[in-house]
Amino acid sequence: MGDYRGVNDMQEKTSPSPEPAGSEGNGGSGAAAGNGPVKPVIPAAAAKRANASVIGMIIALVVSIAAFLPIILMNPLPRSDGYRPNIDVAAVSRNATDVAGFTPVAPDTGDSFRPNYARWEAGTGNGVPTWEVGYLTPKESFIGLVQTRNANPTWLLQQTRNAPVTGSRNAGGQEWELRDTGKGEKSLVLDYRGTTVVLSGEAQLDEFAALADAVVKSLESNPAVTVSPSPAAAP
């Protein structure tokens, strides 16, 4: 009996004791819990190159802005609609008198009609030298004035857009010939005191009449243009 009990004791001592359930799983979980999310590490040289690229882009942008800024400053934005060019029609007319051979009209319209150009054209293209003035009307339309002492039928058709004669209008005590294209563009034509004056545009007839009246007054205040007779042909 004693030997049997001794064998049993030895078996109990040499038998491996069972691992507690879940001990291995807990060990693995603990190891996993101990290792956090892996963070990539950028080498110092790569980080330096990335920073250099960003700095280079910023420098290039600054250089581009500095290059274009003078161009922008030298080309200011268009002026607002309220801008009025300072055109002295009377002064330009006086300067053109010698080359024109007559005193070009300078209608006194006060502040109602605003001139936006006044010039003498030599007529190198069509052989008809002209005095030209552009007017913005009180109703924000436009009337162009052309005056010459060398008018001819072809030139007159060009100035009036080939419009037919549709009537006449009295302005300044003179009868102006009315030509109308039927598409809004119209012209008043006057042969008076040695020159031909053409007013053309899409303004209303009352604005045409107001400008025409001022033109007649200017014509009558200037010396009349005399046409030298052609020399007689030799027999």
Rank of each mutant, 00 (worst) to 15 (best):
V215T: 07
S187Y: 00
A21L: 08
A203F: 01
N75A: 10
R94I: 08
I55F: 12
K139R: 14
L190V: 06
P153Y: 05
G30N: 09
T14I: 15
Y192N: 10
A214F: 04
S53I: 13
G56L: 07
M10F: 12
N162Q: 11
N126S: 06
V146E: 04
P85S: 05
V54R: 14
T195L: 07
V7L: 15
A90S: 14
R114M: 08
L61S: 14
A47F: 05
G2R: 15
T109E: 03
A66M: 12
A209G: 09
P70T: 07
L156E: 05
A210M: 13
V189G: 00
A47C: 04
N162K: 10
G25Q: 13
S221Y: 02
N126I: 01
V62R: 09
A21C: 03
R94K: 15
N152T: 04
S168V: 04
T14S: 14
G167M: 02
V128W: 01
Y135P: 00
N95H: 09
L136M: 12
R149L: 08
V189W: 00
I65W: 08
W155Y: 08
A151L: 08
N51F: 07
L61T: 11
V198D: 00
D3R: 13
G123M: 03
A151E: 11
W131C: 02
A209D: 13
M10A: 15
K217A: 13
V41E: 10
T103H: 10
T166I: 03
L145R: 01
S112W: 03
G22E: 03
G34Y: 04
G182Y: 05
W176H: 02
A67S: 10
W176K: 02
V133W: 02
Q204R: 14
A45I: 09
G30F: 04
V54E: 09
Q159E: 10
V189P: 00
A163S: 11
V216Q: 04
R119P: 00
A212Y: 03
L219F: 04
G27Q: 12
V62W: 06
Y4A: 15
L69S: 13
V225Y: 05
P78C: 12
E132A: 11
L211C: 04
V63K: 06
A96P: 01
W131L: 03
A21Y: 03
L199H: 01
G182Q: 06
R193W: 04
T196R: 12
S17D: 12
V197C: 05
P85N: 07
A232V: 11
I55V: 14
L136I: 14
S15D: 13
P20Q: 13
K183R: 14
N222K: 07
L61P: 00
T109A: 09
S168C: 02
G28D: 09
P70S: 07
A232M: 07
S168I: 02
P164E: 06
V63C: 11
A232Q: 12
M74T: 13
R193K: 13
A91Y: 07
A210W: 01
V99T: 15
G127S: 05
D108K: 15
V146R: 10
L136W: 07
K217C: 02
A44M: 11
A96T: 08
G2K: 14
K39D: 07
T124Q: 11
Q174R: 15
E121T: 10
V225H: 04
S187E: 00
A151F: 05
S230D: 11
N86Q: 14
Q159W: 00
